[in-house]
Computed example of a mutant assay.
Amino acid sequence: MAKQYENIPERWARFITEQQIFFVATATCDSRVNISPKGLDTLRILDPNRVAWLNLTGSGNESAAHVKTDPRMTLMFCAFSGEPVILRLYGTARVLHPGDADWPALAALFAPLPGARQIFDVAIDLVQTSCGFGVPYFDFAGDGPDLRAWTEKKGEEGVRRYWRERNAVSIDGLKTGIDDKNRS
């Protein structure tokens, strides 16, 4: 049975911090819906109605493009062991790039990771849990090494070039803002 909350209760805050993966969903009124898995140590609960997550370089940059037009964002967490539960955080996000004034304060909350390109600061207006009975059990075997190795091999300038070439526009042709904010 689904339960709704106006903020993140302590019980569910502990659940969120124990998860190794979460999913982010965004869309505009006329774009494709994007759902992305996120891992590593890239999420922080700032208070019961606010979270921030560090976005690393990837093959696309849909969330940034969508949030510029429509700030709605949903984060989903699933229990892959223990009590079956699905938890969703609904809210509105703002995207921060390394050149933005608020970047240093939020970036300090995360261990430095190569390829960090944005932080999403999400104001939560609804938390919902549901049963998760259909979610299979999985064992966490560790973080994948490929993203870190790829970004370290490219180097800082190579990553910035990749952002300009591959992350500046969404698959629907929406600008992501990365080319405007990340010039050094």
Rank of each mutant, 00 (worst) to 15 (best):
A27K: 14
T28H: 06
T28S: 11
T28C: 12
T28N: 13
C29P: 08
C29K: 09
C29I: 11
S31R: 05
R32S: 13
R32I: 04
R32L: 10
V33K: 04
N34A: 15
N34D: 15
N34P: 05
I35F: 15
I35D: 02
I35G: 14
S36Y: 09
S36K: 13
S36V: 09
P37K: 06
K38F: 13
K38Q: 12
G39Q: 05
L40S: 15
L40M: 15
D41C: 07
D41L: 08
D41W: 05
D41K: 15
D41P: 05
T42M: 11
T42G: 14
T42N: 13
T42C: 09
T42E: 07
T42Y: 02
L43Y: 06
R44G: 10
I45S: 00
I45Y: 00
L46D: 13
D47M: 02
R50W: 01
V51S: 02
A52V: 09
A52D: 00
A52S: 03
A52C: 01
W53C: 01
W53D: 00
W53R: 00
W53M: 01
L54D: 00
L54M: 11
T57L: 15
G58M: 05
G58A: 11
S59P: 05
S59N: 10
S59G: 07
G60K: 08
G60A: 06
G60C: 08
N61E: 04
E62F: 03
E62R: 03
S63L: 05
A65Y: 07
A65H: 06
H66W: 14
V67E: 03
V67P: 03
K68N: 12
K68M: 15
T69Y: 15
T69I: 15
D70V: 01
D70L: 09
P71T: 03
P71V: 10
P71N: 00
R72K: 11
M73C: 05
M73V: 02
M73E: 06
M73F: 01
T74W: 10
T74F: 02
T74S: 03
T74K: 01
L75N: 04
L75K: 00
M76D: 07
M76T: 11
F77H: 10
F77L: 03
C78A: 06
C78T: 15
A79S: 06
A79G: 10
F80P: 01
F80L: 12
F80C: 09
F80Q: 04
S81C: 14
S81L: 03
S81R: 14
G82N: 04
G82T: 08
G82S: 10
G82P: 14
E83H: 12
P84V: 11
P84G: 06
P84C: 05
V85I: 15
I86C: 04
I86Q: 12
I86T: 12
L87S: 03
R88H: 06
L89W: 02
Y90C: 03
Y90L: 09
G91W: 01
G91K: 05
T92A: 07
T92L: 02
T92Y: 11
T92M: 06
A93K: 15
V95I: 07
V95R: 02
H97R: 10
H97F: 04
